[in-house]
């Protein structure tokens, strides 16, 4: 945490990335000249209002889209190489579970795709199911689960290949506040246990402040990096962070990015 950033290993490098959609003449610029780095074992949030291109950015990292200009390197490789070697797990806003599979079968999906033998991974899936607290639900179908439970399955599924990187696209934004806080706490616990690099897209300031080591604040129309807030999260018991003085200071700092500087909330951004 206190190493200088230059000495740390850059896991993801986003270099002068621009992204445009649509027909020529009617192009919409989703991202313009976006550059930043994400370091190994960091929890970084991409925070911004809708239309700032944060989900697009995540999809570029996942090689689900290709940038119009610029490039992204993950562990010194093109995202495609990274994807082909299954070195990241992804969680969407929608749990995206296959409705014909049980909880267990959904978690095993990536392992099956990888072509592993059932005997190799059944212990692992049991462990993952336990980790997300769904042991008594492992033979349930998605429609029998609450939204929070479904998202837990999605997280376990993303972890099943034990990838070094976790990409999360607003995973908790469709959940109610109680479930959300619970899952946030669980995610921090997972982060502590597995020490993965996590890129977390969100539009919630408290969520970003609560979870992240660093926050990359994006502004909209077109999507650009507005500012980067360092040293966000404090060490200590995560269940009490929200009550701390520092949490509220941080909230204020991040909010100020939106409200005070450069007229962020003027005109079109709302």
């Amino acid at each position: 945490m206190h190493l200088s950033q230059a000495a740390k290993k850059a896991e993801i490098i986003v270099d002068q990335v621009s992204m445009r959609f649509g027909k020529k003449g009617h192009e919409v610029t989703a991202l313009q000249n976006v550059s930043f780095k994400i370091y190994r074992n960091e929890f970084v949030s991409l925070l911004g209002p809708s239309g700032c291109g944060k989900s697009t950015l995540l999809r570029l990292m996942a090689d689900l889209l290709e940038p119009t200009e610029g490039q992204i390197m993950i562990q010194d490789e093109h995202p495609r190489e990274v994807r082909l070697r299954r070195k990241f797990g992804i969680v969407f806003q929608n749990p995206t579970l296959f409705e014909w599979r049980t909880v267990k079968q959904n978690i095993e999906l990536p392992l099956e795709v990888l072509g592993q033998k059932k005997s190799q991974y059944s212990a692992l899936t049991e462990q993952l199911i336990e980790m997300v607290g769904l042991s008594s639900f492992k033979h349930y179908y998605p429609w029998q689960l609450s939204g929070g439970m479904q998202q837990r399955v999605a997280i376990a599924r993303a972890l099943s290949l034990d990838p070094p990187i976790l990409l999360m696209d607003e995973p908790f934004s469709a959940l109610d506040e109680f479930t959300k806080e619970k899952l946030q706490l669980e995610l921090l616990e997972i982060k502590r246990k597995t020490n993965k690099t996590i890129v977390f897209v969100t539009h919630s300031i408290p969520e970003a402040v609560y979870l992240s080591d660093r926050i990359i604040v994006l502004s909209a129309h077109p999507g650009r990096v507005h500012s980067i807030v360092d040293n966000v999260r404090e060490e200590g018991d995560p269940s009490h962070i929200r009550e701390s003085e520092r949490f509220h200071e941080m909230m204020k700092t991040v909010r100020n990015c939106f409200y005070e500087e450069s007229g962020f909330l003027d005109g079109q951004t709302i």
């Binding site: 999809r59 996942a62 090689d63 689900l64 994807r83 082909l84 070697r85 299954r86 990241f88 797990g89 992804i90 969407f92 929608n94 995206t96 296959f98 014909w100 999906l109 990536p110 099956e112 795709v113 990888l114 290949l161």
Partner: peptide, 25 residues
């Protein structure tokens, strides 16, 4: 759904696997 396809793509699933696990179902 788009996200289901993206999920399979993130696993670098082959066309055969994609059909077997998702499309045929």
């Amino acid at each position: 759904k788009q996200e289901q396809l993206e999920l399979m793509r993130s696993y670098a699933a082959s066309t055969w696997t994609l059909y077997l696990k998702l499309k045929l179902k």
